[in-house]
Design a protein around this nucleic acid. Sequence first.
DNA 1: CCTGTCATGGTTACCGTTCACACGCGTGGC
DNA 2: GCCACGCGTGTGAACGGTAACCATGACAGG
Lengths: 350, 350
Amino acid sequence: MTADRVETGDQPGGPPPRARGSVMRDVARLAGVSHQTVSRVLNDHPNVRPETRDRVLAAMRALNYRRNSAARTLVTRKSRTLGLIAYETTLFGPASTLYGLEQAARSAGYFVSVASVRSLDRESVLDAVDRLCEQSVEGIVAIAPQSSVGTALAQVPTGLAVVGVGGGGEHVPTVCIDNATGAAMATRHLLALGHTTVQHIAGPPDWPEARDRIDGWREALHSAGAPVPAPRPGNWSARAGYEQGRLLAADPTVTAVFCGNDQIALGALRALHEAGRRVPDEVSVVGFDDVPESGYFLPPLTTVRQDFAELGRRSLDLLIEQLESGIRTDRRVSLTPRFVPRASSGAAPT
Amino acid sequence: MTADRVETGDQPGGPPPRARGSVMRDVARLAGVSHQTVSRVLNDHPNVRPETRDRVLAAMRALNYRRNSAARTLVTRKSRTLGLIAYETTLFGPASTLYGLEQAARSAGYFVSVASVRSLDRESVLDAVDRLCEQSVEGIVAIAPQSSVGTALAQVPTGLAVVGVGGGGEHVPTVCIDNATGAAMATRHLLALGHTTVQHIAGPPDWPEARDRIDGWREALHSAGAPVPAPRPGNWSARAGYEQGRLLAADPTVTAVFCGNDQIALGALRALHEAGRRVPDEVSVVGFDDVPESGYFLPPLTTVRQDFAELGRRSLDLLIEQLESGIRTDRRVSLTPRFVPRASSGAAPT
DNA sequence: CCTGTCATGGTTACCGTTCACACGCGTGGC
DNA sequence: GCCACGCGTGTGAACGGTAACCATGACAGG
């Protein structure tokens, strides 16, 4: 009955949309085999005669069969779906990571289901985890690298693989950029240009990334014997960079500023410009991230590049590693960022 | 057997992670009812005595039961999952739309599964559709507003709701920003400032958004009786803005530039700056999008704001409307953008 | 007292896969 | 000639829900 719904018309006017609702039995009937054989073909089992396989494949094509993943999930208890907890995905970094992850997941044969959270309190995160669990995801990647998330994630049902992206969790496998090293690169670059010290406008204090960058900056200053000013508190926005930048611009001893990210740097750049302090002649500015626009700031921004897409790919690797081994590691993968010199940093004024 | 896996320990050291694997039967057994009654409670059916309902709820809590959505999907043939075809999600616009959509979907009780595509050729889009179909999504939202996508989407299986976001498709319900109006706003603003005409650095020609903005710009010039120069071809990047900006900067008659988006404007700003043409004194620049950083460009960018999150929400509305009515509309929802004047535009030089 | 209706809850079939197992058949070793 | 074995294939039972249908008891109306 259902089988004759074939009619994948080659008639003009465009083929009709593929028919919903052909199932294994239909394919089996058309190919003259049992549903089990169809299943075998589908799952690349050995012990199917090539000729039979071809017949089945032809039938599948004719009926435009696609397998019902719900049924499959039900019996195998594997959904081939990954959950993604996303925070602030409108930012370039998280958005890119999401992209990298999805691409990687796709080629590994996984689907990705997202749950964005509006805030990172325990409540929201646990709620997101719940939603994902209900879809019986096999693993969860959290692009939400706040410390609080780490602890929330540790609570996730056993048998569920978890990976954090970014500075995050204590007891959760994590993949992150080596923020401290990146920050140190930027700082050393500025010191090498003759600046006696480097100011830092930091990201939000509850982001481990921000803290690690502070650490790297501080350490670089310290080991060069340079004075260590207090880091300026901020968040990831241009506005924060602007506000802190105004304060820094008013201080004539300031000649070098390392910013927690490129947006902050943009704000700082504007503040310096408004205060009449030329960049890089009077003040050098370095950012972090290397967003696509930073090469077009005024002046083009010296920064530290993170490979966000790679971050996504690696987090998938880590997840799959757990899925396959069945054990929850607490490995930490760290990616080294790359320093990108441009025009916003220069020799210290004499 | 399974029921005594309760032990959702209140013991110190943190409760053990919720137990996987309690199913309806377990709950039913514990509550002393049949699994059907549990189902009724779960689905808010009437005709369950309050006392029974409470017993069931208590049992569910005790066992930390969560229903298996695969089983549910299998029998109801409704997955409560939406598919999202995403393109260039690292850009601010698409990323924000994704966010808006996900939030809306969540509160409407839907899950969101994403399929990002690397390119928008028919092949890739159809492949993404396939992947989503396999997950038996109930509807698809395509944040991938190229013309080609529209036609590909029209091919989607019947019985599957589809919505395009952005300029896109012919025969597909669409929600978009009124790009022509936005472009006209920007253009009229510049004309009102006394500029004799307005140049336009456009987005990629295969994006309907870009075309609509060209149309709006052209129409505004035309109806004001201003000369209509050829639009400069570009893409959405700062680089394109920079390259076209250099050409424009070399032409002393150019006093006003309307850019296809804020990134382009950023590039143009830099090109003008390098050429020594002051903004806004000598040349006015207007962007489109109002990305969070544009208020911190040098100078702060006059632009046109799109409410991307609203775009996401509306596309969900449209999808749900189709899902509930069961008919595929080809309604087109158009959102009016908002003009945001800042410092990059000013009176024409005399 | 019989019947109809309503509230409540149980029975059972079914959704579309996969898995465990059985089956028939050719082949090779003894 | 018998048995074991591998190959290719079919059969039936899960998986965990929901929906349609049935059973029971209480209660009202005739």
